[in-house]
Write a protein that binds this DNA or RNA. Sequence first.
DNA 1: TTGACAACATACCCGGTAGTATGTTCATCA
DNA 2: TGATGAACATACTACCGGGTATGTTGTCAA
Lengths: 213, 213
Amino acid sequence: MTLSVRELVLDNSRADILQAAATCFAERGYAQTSIDDVARRLSATKGRIYHHYPSKADLFADVFRTGMDMNHAAVEPHRRSAGSPLDRWRGMARAHVRQMIETKAFQRAVWEGVEMHLRGATTPEQRDELTRLSAYRDEYGNIFRAVLAEGRAQGVFHFEHIGIANQLALMTLNSPIFWYKPRPRESERDVARIVEQVVVCALRGLGAPEEAE
Amino acid sequence: MTLSVRELVLDNSRADILQAAATCFAERGYAQTSIDDVARRLSATKGRIYHHYPSKADLFADVFRTGMDMNHAAVEPHRRSAGSPLDRWRGMARAHVRQMIETKAFQRAVWEGVEMHLRGATTPEQRDELTRLSAYRDEYGNIFRAVLAEGRAQGVFHFEHIGIANQLALMTLNSPIFWYKPRPRESERDVARIVEQVVVCALRGLGAPEEAE
DNA sequence: TTGACAACATACCCGGTAGTATGTTCATCA
DNA sequence: TGATGAACATACTACCGGGTATGTTGTCAA
């Protein structure tokens, strides 16, 4: 299922910092978030954060990495499953969308990290850390792309350019990080329905056959 | 067709500033862009910019507004056309995607502006300017939503929740501002094919009937 | 019991940037 | 032709925030 931060990050103190940082970065963006903001959210001061992280950029990188780690862990089982490409893609997509919703703060940081990398980010040293993480993210995108290619070869998916198709599909799957807001008294069932609508939309976009499963 | 900045903005000096600002904001983001950056791109100094705009926030707001004005101008004719909801939606979508590609810098500013508004932006005064612009953007989104609703009533589109469907469709149509890069020696025909793939993907996602037009 | 270290808090420095105050140049018009 | 104002450039201030240097507290091991 969906991994929480505390499950993935052993150190409790660091996990708290990561969660607070992810929330701040998601709320205000990297540049607008000061280290003091993160500390304030922890009812602490800079000292605590700089004791664990050498710089703001490193803290952000750790949020980025943690978000991606959680995604990989959630999607990997479905990729390895024995079903058809269509079934595997759907399984991966569902897991991914659920990740976007349930670890939204981290996923927004991932998004902004990729953006920062595409732009010309900061110092040369932090730059290749971002490059590594961005490659990590690309690799993740390629997992979906591979299943997509396999499915097209079998005549399940229909599209013109696989790069564009993959981009569009992933964009759809990612989109909840921008518009999803938990409703008051929202049930697990409600979330599942949202996930399903997103996945169905993406599958249709890929030219997959409609079905009632 | 697609409007250029100089066509829309009468004052030439302001148009140059707007273009430079849009480019800078798109490249680095609002916070990372200093007024000096914009001035440098113009081979000028702060003085020029502050002569025309009272603050950085006002400059950004003008970029935002200009981007939205161009979108409205491009889409409006298709909305008013006499065709079926499906044809109108497709026409609007094509025009929109083309806007995203050809005025990408401005559209990224629009995107960031909406983001900034959803977060808690700056001073109370600049805040309600952003609120106005964000409402302007919502109104634009509702144009698509209205045609979508009309089409669903006629059985052309098929989806569960119209809010989510509209969000997903617009996200697809907007996505080129994130991944589109002009290729060397790219022809008008190439652009048209990209536009078509995006629009087709969005239409499928909405459950519209496939056709070869 | 003490010393050593982890885990912070406090106080301070300093670079970058928004905004301002004050020149300077050039065109226009009375 | 001189005065006036638009359209900038230059020089400066104030502040915010990343980073550092140093102090404080609790814990654990010898």
